[in-house]
Amino acid sequence: MPSAPSRIFAYLALLLLPLVIMVVTHPFNPDTFIYNLGRCFGLLGFAILMGQVILAARLRWVEKPFGLNITFPFHRRMGVFAALLLIMHPLFLALGGAGWPLLIGLRIDWFIWLAKVSLPLLLINVFVSLRRASLGIKFEKWRQCHGLLGPTIILLVFLHSWNAGADLTAVPLQVLWVGLLALGVLLFSYHRLIRPWWLSRSPYRIVEVRQETPAVWTLRFSPPPGEKRFDFMPGQFQFLTLLRGKDLPVEEHHFTISSSPADPDFHTSTIKASGDFTATIGQTRVGDLAVVHAPFGRFSYLVHPNARELVFIAGGIGITPLISNLRHMRDTGADRRVLLLFSNKSEADIVFKEELDGMAGREKPHLQVVHILTQPGSAWKGETGRLDREKLSRLCGAHLAHSTFLLCCPPPMIQSLVTILNDLGVPISRISYEYFSL
């Protein structure tokens, strides 16, 4: 991944800079080691919280070498790490000499109260973000709450550390603290307000709404008049805000781009009506507008230039990034051999069946398609059941030894497939996957 190490180094430098400044400006003090460690955890935790804004702001410079498939889960993990550090911060201070009144006392300074309020808020924020789906919270509602809670926590932690931190008397650390806060405010405003407003000034237009199966629709977008469509790699995705009728929700969601970048004038997304928002996708009309923020992701065969043989495994609507890859291979005559294992419930659920079967007769790419149905009709003569170890072993055959695997399925299916593929001798380094949701 080009340039990735420099980004990681810059991020680490940002996290560790407060510790370096602390050591340089206050080399020694009479406090205990445990107390000093508690302080360090506090400084580190604050720096990570500020870094969270940078990770979440969808900045091209930050995201490009990794893809949001890595930066967003990394943002989640760093949120957990920051929460653990900020739990240990008061515990170590108390153990190191401040005593238990720091934790349980009520007669404490107002800036300690700020920390006592911000820590539960942070824990709630992290817990809800990790368990959103199982708690039944809608994505849009969670996003709104996250956008309020995150900055509130950062502001409270800033005020707490500014007033409570003995090290914050040093001017270099004060400059860094104010600089980080200013950067956070700037990035948050840009991400949540300025960029959405800027993008909404030149929306894309929906020029076709096509029903693929009873539950799946393809929307075709054309760029604003006089503008070129954005450039993208096959398999990437876009953030989309549909501006439709008054009664239809205006929410931003991410959808895979299902078309090939070789088509210079349009792009498409193929969407299954399943969740609260996507259930309305069939009500989209030609002429509706769409605010587009794209492209993102690295789920593309172009990221694997040396992989001549590939195995694509799709579960249901997970075919969308893979059809984009296949269409691009077809349009450019890519010299690749691809085995596509496509799992669906019934024959009626198979999206792009005719197109896939038509592509299977070509030389470049050399495509073999195997449909697998979990609830087949009586007339079905192909593979049936779940993609288990026996099927993967039999269908993949020699591919297991050398091919690169690209998987796009629901999370439980991905976990099962990765485990089985590992058991069959496919190292994780040859498996690339994308969940339906980030």
Binding site: L19, C40, I70, I428
Partner: peptide, 30 residues
Amino acid sequence: MEFLYLNRVTGLVILSSLIAALAAALLRTY
């Protein structure tokens, strides 16, 4: 591939941060 990379980066950042915090606390105390 992504999972492996994510784990490595997360491990590197967490480990480096904890080592740096320990080192900084040691330097200040002794």
